[in-house]
C-alpha cells in the first residue's frame, strides 16, 4: 500500500473519503471498487491489505463492512427513483428499470443536497443513450420514444407538484376576460403560469402514468399524437389534453408579445388560424384552470 501523504491520523481525510466513495459507489461492488483506478489513485490497497484501512469486526471482514454501505448506496437511490417514477418502473419491470437507472446514476451520480433533483438529467440521458440514437429519426424504433416521453411526463409531474405555483395570488378571471372585446383580446399579452408545462407526445404517456398511479397495470399504449398541459391548482397537479391548435397557441404565450403577433407567428404551423372569439373562449377556460398568470 501507498501512504505517501500520511498525516496525523493516517491517510489525509480527503484521500480517505475519495477512496471510500469510489469503493462504495462502484456498480461492480466492493471488490471491483477497491480495484478501480479511482480508488487506487487515492489508496492503493487490494482485497488483502484493505483491512489496514477498514478494520474487521468480530463478525465481518473490512470488505463486508464496506459492502453494507455499497449495497445501501445503490438500494437507496434505486428505491428513490422507483418511487419517483412508478410508471416507468411498471413499463420496464424491475430488471430493466434497475439497469436503466443504475446506468444513469453511474453517469450522473447525485450532486445535490436533496434527492428531489436525482433524476433531473434522466430524460436527456435516456435520449442520448437510446440504442438507435445514431440512426435517422425516420429509421428509429418507436418504443424508446415511449420511454423517454414517459419519464419526461413523470418528472414534470413532480416538478410541477413542488415548484412555483400561483396559490394565494390574484389571477385573471374568466368573467373579466369574457367582458373584453375581441380587439382588446388580440392586443393582450397572456403570460403562462410558472407551473404550466406543455408537451407534444407521440404516445399518450399521461394517461398511462395516471393509470399506474391509480394502481392499475396498463399495457404499453399504441402510438397516438397527444398534446398535454400540466399545471397546478390549489396544490394539486392537473393534466389536460389539448388540441394541436391550442398547444400551438399556448406555446406562443410569453407575456411580452401581443396575442395577435403570437397568432401570426404560429399561422404557418397551425391552419386554419383560430378565430379571435374562439381564442377568447380558450383564454376563459385556461384562466379558470390556472394556465395563466396574467392576460
Amino acid at each position: 500500500m501507498n501512504l505517501d501523504d500520511e498525516s496525523v491520523g493516517g491517510i489525509e481525510l480527503g484521500r480517505l473519503q475519495g477512496w471510500m466513495q469510489a469503493v462504495i459507489t462502484h456498480p461492480g461492488g466492493v471488490g471491483a471498487g477497491v480495484a478501480s483506478p479511482a480508488a487506487r489513485r487515492r489508496v492503493a490497497v487490494d482485497a488483502k491489505s484493505l483491512e489496514t484501512i477498514v478494520i474487521p469486526s468480530e463478525t465481518l471482514t473490512g470488505a463486508e463492512r464496506l459492502a453494507i454501505y455499497s449495497r445501501s448506496y445503490h438500494a437507496r437511490l434505486l428505491q428513490c427513483m422507483r418511487e419517483m417514477l412508478p410508471a416507468l418502473y411498471h413499463a420496464l419491470g424491475e430488471g430493466l428499470f434497475n439497469l436503466f437507472a443504475l446506468d444513469y446514476l453511474q453517469h450522473h451520480p447525485p450532486r445535490s443536497y436533496t434527492l428531489d433533483n436525482l433524476a433531473d438529467r434522466f430524460v436527456q440521458h435516456l435520449a442520448e443513450t437510446r440504442p438507435d440514437s445514431n440512426a435517422l429519426p425516420s429509421e428509429r424504433e418507436s418504443w424508446p420514444d415511449f420511454i423517454v416521453e414517459l419519464v419526461a411526463m413523470e418528472w414534470a409531474f413532480l416538478k410541477v407538484y413542488d415548484g412555483d405555483g400561483l396559490e394565494g395570488r390574484a389571477l385573471p378571471s374568466a368573467a373579466g376576460i369574457r367582458a373584453l372585446d375581441l380587439e382588446r383580446i388580440l392586443e393582450s399579452r397572456p403570460a403562462p403560469a410558472p407551473c404550466l408545462r406543455l408537451f407534444a407526445f407521440r404516445y399518450p404517456v399521461h394517461a398511462y402514468m395516471l393509470a399506474v398511479r391509480r394502481g392499475e397495470r396498463p399495457p404499453i399504449p399504441a402510438p397516438s399524437e397527444t398534446f398535454v398541459a400540466a399545471t397546478r391548482s390549489d396544490f394539486r397537479v392537473m393534466l389536460y389534453e389539448l388540441s394541436a391548435q391550442q398547444y400551438a397557441v399556448l406555446k406562443a404565450f410569453d407575456g411580452q408579445h401581443a396575442l395577435k403577433d403570437a397568432l401570426d407567428q404560429i399561422g404557418s404551423v397551425s391552419s386554419p388560424r383560430p378565430h379571435a372569439a374562439t381564442i377568447r373562449d380558450w383564454l376563459c377556460d385556461w384562466a379558470s384552470k390556472g394556465f395563466l398568470e396574467t392576460v
Binding site: 428513490c80 419517483m84 434527492l115 395516471l210 391509480r214 393534466l239 389534453e241
Partner: peptide, 16 residues
C-alpha cells in the same frame, strides 16, 4: 433523506 421526498398519493393529478 428519503422520507417525505415524494408527493402524497392523495394529490394524484387529474386530467380532462
Amino acid at each position: 433523506a428519503l422520507a417525505g421526498a415524494h408527493p402524497p398519493h392523495s394529490s394524484l393529478p387529474e386530467y380532462v
